[in-house]
Write a protein that binds this DNA or RNA. Structure first.
Length: 201
DNA sequence: TGAATGATTTACT
DNA sequence: GTAAATCATTCAA
């Protein structure tokens, strides 16, 4: 398993989000390795994107990683119980990131199931940003990790058929909420929300 | 110091 | 379909 080079991340955030679909997310932990194919991701482009935490150039202890060099992990906590993981992209001082929303479990499935309190084979193991972080044991300790070094990294994968839709859970962002900045694998049963009947083609 | 609020999940009605 | 869980971060005072 080889990690993607930093040049993969040092590009426009929409490009990285699009190409993140189909890549393999790997996390080596003391309990063992877990890996999954990324089937859903969203782009956040601060400071102009109202849905992004870095909107308006807000640079705080929490958002600091997004302002750093590309190829690092931006990890944050919401709703009092859920962690989310992002890939920092583009360049230093460009607070852009790609939120990983869902993966297809490939390796370490038993470990994921144990962490989630579910049985192997469950389809809701990693089909959501909070769920996959729990399954992958991504949390506070993962903040700011260099994705080019591990233990958390992305690995090449086959190019899937990618579809787009508006982002999820950011209705407060006004016009920005309508932008189709969510990317997902069209045929995958592992996405957090199936394509809407109307949006399907 | 205090109050408001989530890039969600889960359980219920 | 709706609502509760639950707390770090943020902003106002």
């Amino acid at each position: 398993m080889k990690s993607l080079p930093r040049s993969f991340y040092a590009r426009p955030v929409l490009t990285v989000a699009r190409e993140t679909i189909g890549k393999i997310l790997v996390h080596d932990t003391p309990e063992g390795r877990v890996a999954g194919r990324i089937v859903e991701a969203e782009a956040y482009r601060g400071p102009e994107d109202r849905a992004a935490h870095s909107y308006g150039g807000r640079r705080t202890a929490r958002t600091e990683a997004m302002f750093g060099p590309p190829g690092h992990a931006y990890v944050f906590f919401v709703y009092g119980m859920h962690w989310h993981v992002n890939l920092v992209t583009t360049a230093v001082d460009a607070p852009h990131a790609v939120l990983i929303r869902a993966v297809e479990p490939l390796e370490g499935v038993e470990l994921m199931a144990a962490r989630r309190g579910l049985t192997v084979g469950a389809r809701d193991l990693t089909n959501g940003p909070g769920k996959l972080c729990q399954a992958f044991a991504i949390g506070k300790a993962s903040y700011g990790l260099d994705l080019c070094k591990g233990p958390l990294f992305l690995s090449p994968g086959a190019e899937p058929r990618v579809a787009r839709s508006p982002r999820i859970g950011i209705d407060y962002a006004g016009d920005w909420a309508a932008r189709p900045w969510r990317f997902f694998e069209r045929a995958s049963p592992w996405v957090s929300r199936a394509p809407s009947p109307r949006g399907r083609r």
